[in-house]
Design a protein around this nucleic acid. Structure first.
Lengths: 232, 232
DNA sequence: GGGATCGTATCGCTCAGCGATACGATGCCG
DNA sequence: CGGCATCGTATCGCTGAGCGATACGATCCC
């Protein structure tokens, strides 16, 4: 989450506390929140107390956790909500046909943010998390979003350093550029162990009113998943 | 959302603004936010500006909407996240077998809060919304949660006025009490047009470590859905 | 036993936040 | 057309909400 760090206001400090919780965290102690935010202990303690009263945090015996009140607010974000309403039936269809993990994601700057993930009991161990992010260039869903993003976004990404996550990650701008051009031409993008070892993906864009607003992907383990068999 | 209204602090005011957005709202104007919160116009304007900077609100041409930053935070609420991880594969199974709408919900006081909803292209028109709430007594999922809730919760609900939502809503405490006892004995509860006309539901509890923590339900239109056919 | 760390609480200080106010733009109605 | 209502944006003097330095008891470890 790339929002500016405002530690000079109440709202900024409170937001820093809420954002100190990562996608895999459960409970954080007051001391850990202090370490992660850099706020003073007494300030953190006071704000946490108020956030608990406001049902944005829960206080448990082991520390604090993000509360259901925040889940409710998050589910009211209309852009994400509308996308889910539109996409979940299709995601369900896709899952039913393949029994592999289906993702819905949107572009946020230079990252894909996952809106939904439908896998079954035998999910491939993908690093994705609903509400989490991954760099655009190393996932199929990210690449298809990047392929159909405005030129300035692509140019910016291609001119910066591309993070390597596995030995297979595309980090050479020329190679990525060709891959994106291919994705644009075919309307589909692939990933072969570029974000994590052991998984392949195929992804396609979702357009609304002629604009690509999101993408769907299918992810499976390399042992049994052939992404080319799933493209149109 | 039954959190206390603290309008005497920055956090309280900002939370009031965020909570002014209902489950079906898209964009709200500054003036509408002022009306819904009762805050002063200049205060609302200032706080909205700051919430936008912090990516908790988005500013669009028509007004403000809850942002993706809030969606991300909401998805990090660990209790809800853990429940989703556990339940979504089973929800998918159920959807695949029935092609009717599947819900996951938890009890929040005297209401069910919906955590997830999986439906297809021909969903029955249920009033449920992810992140939304309905009274416990008039939905199958709510009744099963109430049936397995602590006695004090049941007693409290049965001693108050039960809201009527349709001509079929159970509003007589004696009738509801019998229905709940039945649900406890059978481990399943039904709804027949009690929350909305035209839909039937069947629901069952989800227990973790011997405690009922959530419930799953199946919802379909009265025209084609026989809830008894779907119970264990 | 001493030190480190934790969570909880207090209090004097001060500036962040407030709301009263102002202004230009827009829309509506007589 | 003019007056009024409403809207969104901005300013500024005032003050109390928020801050952080500090204190304390509890727990753990060496």
């Amino acid at each position: 989450m790339a929002a500016a760090t405002h530690l000079d206001s109440v709202l900024g400090k409170a937001t820093a506390i809420l954002r100190a919780f990562g996608v895999d965290d459960h409970v954080l102690t007051l001391a850990e929140l202090v370490r992660r935010t850099g706020l003073h202990k007494a300030t953190t303690y006071r704000l946490c107390g108020e956030l608990v009263e406001l049902r944005l945090l829960d206080k448990t015996s082991g520390g604090y956790r993000l509360s259901g009140g925040l889940f409710e607010l998050g589910m009211r974000a209309s852009a994400e909500r509308s996308l889910l309403e539109l996409a979940v039936p299709f995601m369900q269809d896709l899952y039913e046909r393949t029994h592999e993990t289906v993702h819905l994601g949107v572009r946020e700057g230079t990252e894909v943010m996952y809106i939904s993930k439908l896998g079954g009991h035998r999910q491939a161990s993908s690093p994705s998390r609903v509400g989490g992010r991954l760099p655009l260039h190393c996932t199929a869903i990210g690449k298809v979003l990047l392929a159909f993003a405005p030129t300035v976004v692509r140019r910016s990404m291609l001119s910066g350093a591309l993070e390597r996550r596995t030995p297979h990650t595309i980090v050479r701008p020329g190679q990525l550029s060709r891959s994106l051009a291919d994705a644009r031409r075919r309307g589909v993008a692939f990933e072969r162990e570029e974000s994590a070892l052991g998984i392949n993906c195929v992804a396609a864009p979702i357009a609304v009113a002629g604009q690509v607003v999101a993408a769907l992907s299918l992810t499976g383990p390399t042992s049994r998943f052939r992404p080319e068999q799933h493209s149109p």
